[in-house]
Design a protein around this nucleic acid. Structure first.
Lengths: 158, 158
DNA sequence: GCTTGATCTAAAGTTAACTTTAGATATTAA
DNA sequence: TTAATATCTAAAGTTAACTTTAGATCAAGC
């Protein structure tokens, strides 16, 4: 295989629409691979653009950087990821997306059933499978559990 | 209407599964209404349980507290929200859920089409409508725009 | 060779969303 | 009434995810 062309940090920043400081931050955090020029500047394989874009998408899905780092660890650091590498990662990711869609769909149904109508009964309102396995933000945030959602949907019962 | 029974901060905390400090924090931030006893302790209408639960659900959907405060502003502060009050809020919220589901579905389709298969062409991969109107975290986080996602999905093109 | 712009490091600053602490008062239960 | 428990305030601390700053070096074009 031909060696992949290396690009500067500014190039990555521009191509992904981010600040240079963010790319440097990700590099320091070990989220994206880089090597140094003889002068000490970082250079990146072009494929890092994909990696950064993946990070942004995953963040949008409420993954923490720690979780993303873990996800990305299935990609090789020492060579450019192949189609197969990305496909493997994609499979895991896809399952998370599906779970998230299912959770939202369930939440929507519950809201419609419980708030939209005049329903006041716990029996009809109780959620079954609304847990969101994906979202979780480090310290403060908790996963919503069934308990919480039930209370939201049922608390009008005196 | 019979006056709604008032409950303590500890009661709200326990019922919603949160720390007392969080309930106090929300009260201070104006996210939930409260009044004081003669001694200075906060007391809440029971309906605040719903409100807190709503906050947790909305946070799980990546709303910031500022956005949630805005959403909740359609609920009356001076009286217990009626079914109709919640239904109105629910309508807005429901639309956001639908948008989010649509965005995730689109992302999923794109991932399957672009990464799962051997597709390398920009034409077949480009996303059209994946913007997520809901998520946005104050300072650091950006909305994913079409640009970023395209780059992720297409960057293997040399 | 020189100037200009890009990049470097290390450390400090920022924001959101909380929690923790300390010391004081309120409330409840015996 | 008294002890135990709950709550209060104000201020400081915490964590994640960044950005900003300052002063120095690198790299590119003329």
């Amino acid at each position: 295989m031909a060696p992949e062309p290396m690009v500067s940090i500014g190039f990555i920043a521009k191509r992904t629409g981010n600040a240079v400081s963010l790319i440097r931050y990700y590099a320091n955090e070990g989220l994206i691979p880089s090597v140094r020029t003889s002068g000490g500047n970082r250079v990146f394989p072009r494929s890092v653009i994909r990696r950064v874009s993946f990070i942004l998408i995953a963040q949008n899905m409420s993954y923490s950087l720690a979780q993303i780092k873990h996800l990305l660890s299935t990609l090789p650091d020492n060579r450019t990821p192949t189609q197969a590498d990305w496909a493997k990662l994609s499979t895991v990711f896809n399952r998370h997306i599906e779970e998230k869609i299912a959770a939202l769909t369930s939440l929507k149904t519950s809201l419609e059933g419980c708030i939209g109508c005049g329903c006041l009964s716990l029996e009809r309102c109780r959620l079954y499978n609304t847990n969101d396995k994906v979202a979780a933000r480090g310290s403060g945030a908790q996963l919503l559990d069934e308990n919480v959602q039930s209370q939201f949907l049922v608390s009008h019962k005196k």
